[in-house]
Nucleic acid binder design. Structure first.
Lengths: 227, 227
DNA sequence: TCAAGTTTGTTGTAAATACAACAATATTGC
DNA sequence: GCAATATTGTTGTATTTACAACAAACTTGA
């Protein structure tokens, strides 16, 4: 039971993660043993996975937060996604049998992750382990939702002006939050990376939008105003 | 067997589609009966599925070609994806249990599609039908690959200038083709919609790139030149 | 509390884009 | 073959952006 105790602090995370959805809490420990993952601790700013690496593993964020990014030749960062505890990452590359990762995963804060070789779970389906079918169903759901989310990101990025990109992103956030005000998980540089625009131009545009009365904000708390 | 004959002209498509991968050709007819889909014929320009509709079904393109698009308030089109026979569409929305579609599917040429209610296949898994497990595994693979592809699209769109967007897209095409020259499935307006830029600006940029010696093209045949 | 570092905001300028209007070229149907 | 239509290319202008440099505000840690 020494191994199990390592996972104990993250019991809540496992139970509420999409990967283990509809798997009873009692069964999770043995499933974790079956998965035989590797626990990893990362300090802020460190690369958890790096573009170009072999895409064997899949990760489950246990604590802290992390970003999926894509860096180009000149260091421009595209922030593809923001991860919270319970989120899976790099699963698409495993499931798609991609040879190497085209994205990197960076610790946005100090964090802990569980790295698992998911390929052996999805490729072989030994009836010995009854959880495999549910795991695959969960993976399906995770991938499908991420897919829909990516199409939303495409919409943000397809806007021609910084203002429209912001509005596209903000309205999605407001919709998600069910309220006209919401908090975003990014600082200005990260938001700029997320929308693929220049940071200072973004700051300037936010100012103008506030002056125009479209928007009100303080730090990372935003409110979309009527009209 | 009246029903089966309807599918007969598309035997090849089914056999080579990702959805029916690793399912023997002999078993496909009965599987099609089990799926109980609806055959639909669409003329060029028609909407096969429209944003806002309930996301119950999933589609399989049987012949012709179609585009996944997203239209904004002012009619700006974002061309999200280009479909060929055998390709599945709207599967992410079904699998993710989205209430409504955020994308539309438009016939790029006259085409035929098979519309299926995939939800009952993925939600219930009756052991009576032994194909279901393989279908789900195939769906997983389709979604994962689409996911990776969408991240590639994000990269294209994240480029700051039209030239860089073009180069990002072209280099992916060249890589996919395994050759420095390749044909693209879009006309200029569609390419502009795909990269979220103005058509005339795109035409102008292509000209400049050709003059600079970066690129050579004729109609839809492109060649990336060294240096 | 203070200093050093980080994040955010502001502004000017050069460069790139959207948009519109139109010209040139291809394609289509008869 | 020819007219009608659709697609592609070109150019000028107003708008918007990236970039750089710097100022202001906020954090952090000793």
């Amino acid at each position: 039971m020494a191994k199990q105790s390592v996972y104990e602090p993250f019991e809540q995370v496992f139970e509420s993660s999409a990967l283990f959805a509809d798997i009873s809490r009692d069964e999770i420990p043995s499933l974790l043993t079956c998965l035989d993952g590797r626990l990893k601790t990362c300090t802020e700013g460190r690369y958890i996975l790096m573009a170009g690496e072999a895409a064997k593993g899949v990760g489950l964020l246990l604590s802290g937060s992390a970003h999926i990014i894509q860096e180009d030749y000149w260091g421009n960062r595209l922030l593809v996604d923001d991860l919270a505890p319970g989120d899976l990452f790099a699963e698409a590359f495993s499931c798609a049998r991609e040879k190497q990762l085209s994205i990197s995963v960076v610790a946005a804060t100090d964090c802990k992750v569980l790295l698992v070789d998911l390929l052996k779970i999805i490729s072989t389906c030994p009836s010995a382990c009854s959880f495999h079918r549910q795991l695959i169903a969960n993976l399906l759901s995770i991938l499908a939702r991420k897919n829909v989310q990516l199409v939303g990101r495409l919409e943000d990025l397809s806007r021609r002006s910084t203002r429209d990109k912001l509005l596209s992103y903000f309205s999605r956030q407001a919709l998600k939050e069910g309220s006209s005000h919401f908090e975003i998980p990014f600082n200005r540089q990260q938001l700029a990376d997320y929308l693929a625009v220049d940071r200072s131009a973004l700051s300037a545009e936010l100012s103008r939008m506030q002056k125009s009365g479209i928007l009100r904000y303080q730090k990372n708390n935003f409110e979309l105003l009527e009209q």
